[in-house]
Amino acid sequence: MDNLTFRYSILLLEGMKVTPQSGYIAFIFLLIAYIYIMLCNILILIQILTEKSLHQPMYLLYCNLTLNDVIGTTVLVPRLLKDFLTDPSARYITYVECVFQAYFIHLNGTTSHTILMIMAFDRYVAICNPLRYSTIMTSEMVVKLSAGAWGVALVLVGILLSLTIRLSHCRSVIQNHVCDNASLFKLSCENVMINNVYGLTFTVVLLVFSIGSVMLTYLRIAIVCFKSKNKKTNRKAFKTVTTHLTLYLLMMVSGFVVIFLHRFSEYADNRRILNVIFNVVPPGLNPIIYGLQAKDIRQSILKRLKNKLSGM
């Protein structure tokens, strides 16, 4: 069994099927997108952490999302950039590297849900219990919520990948442009029923909790706003809720489209292209939709830039 398990320590990635000319164009666009995503997210992250006036629960919880976007993009994009410049027959990756990439890709997707769930809870408390907001959303609560969002994802994805790496593998080609759990256990000639059952259960439970909690949270917020006669408060609540829901819907739509196309092998190339787009677009839009739209963050960044320019 041990000999079979490590029969192929070097794997071949099928990668994106593009011509050399289109590969160079894709490389340039993806590189620009990567630099933009990293600069925007890191800028907002640093701004929130260094500016005391932004040390509010809403913004501190948002730091989890920016950090997750940075990790997810870094795990995926540099490898794709390298593959665009590499001959398809030489796109090799070690089994260990493939497992690490798969782990962080699934971690990124899972924490996207758990982080938006705790952000929804924060908005619920702020709008439905404004007088108790400061007593509920303490620094300790922010730390607990953040740790819970990451901890749950770390454990669930750890189990997911542990069930896969226990398998022997008799194939050496990853039939995908990136390493993920399904691509890894498809390398095995053993029975992978337990992998499929856990993977399906994991996905269903995550989506049920994610969609259920967000729907209930915003339904409650909508009821409170409907009963309230304070137009200013309702307008502010609507703006923050709309921003959060935009992020959530963007994530859900992108995820469901890729999952749906997984069921049709004839659309494999389209699925890979859309998968790359959906892994780049949300992290690029999140800083604009949530970060820069927030008045406090925007003014803080503009103030810092103005001070730097005046000091030159």
Results as ranks from 00 to 15, higher is better:
116 L>H: 10
216 L>V: 09
307 N>C: 08
86 T>M: 06
94 T>M: 07
104 F>V: 03
262 H>V: 02
15 G>V: 05
219 L>E: 11
90 A>L: 13
13 L>K: 09
278 F>T: 02
114 T>K: 07
8 Y>W: 09
136 I>Y: 14
77 V>K: 00
107 L>R: 04
120 A>R: 03
98 C>E: 02
250 L>V: 09
271 R>K: 14
296 D>G: 03
162 S>Y: 05
134 S>E: 12
165 I>K: 04
95 Y>H: 11
81 L>G: 02
9 S>Y: 00
9 S>E: 15
24 Y>A: 11
68 N>A: 15
231 K>E: 11
37 I>D: 00
7 R>C: 08
64 N>M: 09
110 T>F: 10
281 V>Y: 01
16 M>C: 10
122 D>V: 02
49 L>G: 06
217 T>D: 05
141 M>E: 08
277 I>S: 01
280 V>F: 04
16 M>G: 00
232 K>G: 06
290 Y>A: 15
61 L>D: 03
281 V>D: 01
118 I>L: 07
31 L>H: 03
259 I>F: 14
69 D>C: 15
45 L>C: 10
216 L>G: 05
211 I>H: 08
170 C>P: 01
34 Y>A: 00
98 C>P: 03
93 I>K: 06
236 K>H: 10
209 F>R: 04
263 R>H: 14
6 F>V: 09
148 G>A: 04
132 R>L: 06
82 K>R: 14
142 V>F: 02
248 Y>K: 05
307 N>H: 07
191 N>C: 03
201 T>I: 12
289 I>F: 13
116 L>A: 08
40 C>H: 07
